[in-house]
Write a protein that binds this DNA or RNA. Sequence first.
DNA 1: ATATTTGCGGAACAAAAGTTCCGTTATAAT
DNA 2: ATTATAACGGAACTTTTGTTCCGCAAATAT
Lengths: 193, 193
Amino acid sequence: MARTKRFDEEEMLHNAMLLFWHKGYNGTSPQEILDELKLSRSSLYDTYGDKRSLFISALKRYRNTVTAEIIAFLASSENIPEALKTLFQRTKAQCFVGEDKRGCFMVNSKVELAPHDEEVATIVKENREALENAFTAAIKRGQEMGQISKDNPPRSLARFIMNNLWGLTVHSKSGADKKVFDDIIRITLSVIK
Amino acid sequence: MARTKRFDEEEMLHNAMLLFWHKGYNGTSPQEILDELKLSRSSLYDTYGDKRSLFISALKRYRNTVTAEIIAFLASSENIPEALKTLFQRTKAQCFVGEDKRGCFMVNSKVELAPHDEEVATIVKENREALENAFTAAIKRGQEMGQISKDNPPRSLARFIMNNLWGLTVHSKSGADKKVFDDIIRITLSVIK
DNA sequence: ATATTTGCGGAACAAAAGTTCCGTTATAAT
DNA sequence: ATTATAACGGAACTTTTGTTCCGCAAATAT
């Protein structure tokens, strides 16, 4: 009946996500999106709506892939302290990918937009709550398995862990070197004992 | 010899700082600056140069006032654990000023601009290093006075403390309530013993 | 093979962003 | 009081941003 799209919708959304991740919402113009995705103007607007809709879609994609993967990883881990260590190491490694200092897309977006954009604020809040619940459940299991001390309630520890993970993404924007990351990770994990 | 300015240069710079703090660099237009500061276009450009120069000046002002005040506070404190607790409580309190969720201007700026703006990256890096040195010196004194355990080197603890302070400013953008802050502060300070 | 429908290239456009310029006004020093 | 200099108000202008629209192209279903 009609012509088919000559690009992969999901792949383009992924590329748009990477672009917003790098340069922020207000720092990315439609022209840059077109150049980067190699898409025609009409294809962009027909497929994704306006710039803000595209951004919201990208943010949701991040939640459904990156965040979801972390939650799944926690849920499937048997050794919780080891799993947490892995997450910290991965965060550290990602902060040094290609001199990009891109940090975390969710953190970047909430810093730039959450105070003034209701929809972004909602996504960001739900993302935080979902992560907190996943960390809480994992830490609770860790405590029940005797891997983690019961000195602190699991939810408190979950919040503390997340605070340090997010702190690292800010540190990556501050020109901190790997030793700074190592110090922070070592002390943070020492609390989970 | 010539006419005098009808506004206070420092006061206007302060107001500009608050505006950038709220809405970010790319989120603030020259028109908004004029409206907010009640300044004529020519006065703005004659006095502060272009928008980017104004932003840089605002960032430096933050460093010379807010950051400098924290450094002075640490240097003048006798009870270090108490001083750290005060800083955390102040950070928490500021995160809930007027439903603003404005966070920390230095953190906001580095997340938005540091990866793509060399000059911002430099200011942000120097700010981080100055703060780290101030925390390190204070914690070292705290250890020497027997207020803080010597389990960890002072610089490592300094980095850990800063990571959690910055984490809180990110948490404030995530719709977290005060209980979240209290959990994080309690566990963080429990490491400083 | 044809009709139909959607995709695509790019022109076009309104609005805003960001800056400059100029004529007038005020004031400080002489 | 006069003069020199800087401040101010606002017009004006270029560029970019964000979006729409239109005509042609292509592919699918019949």
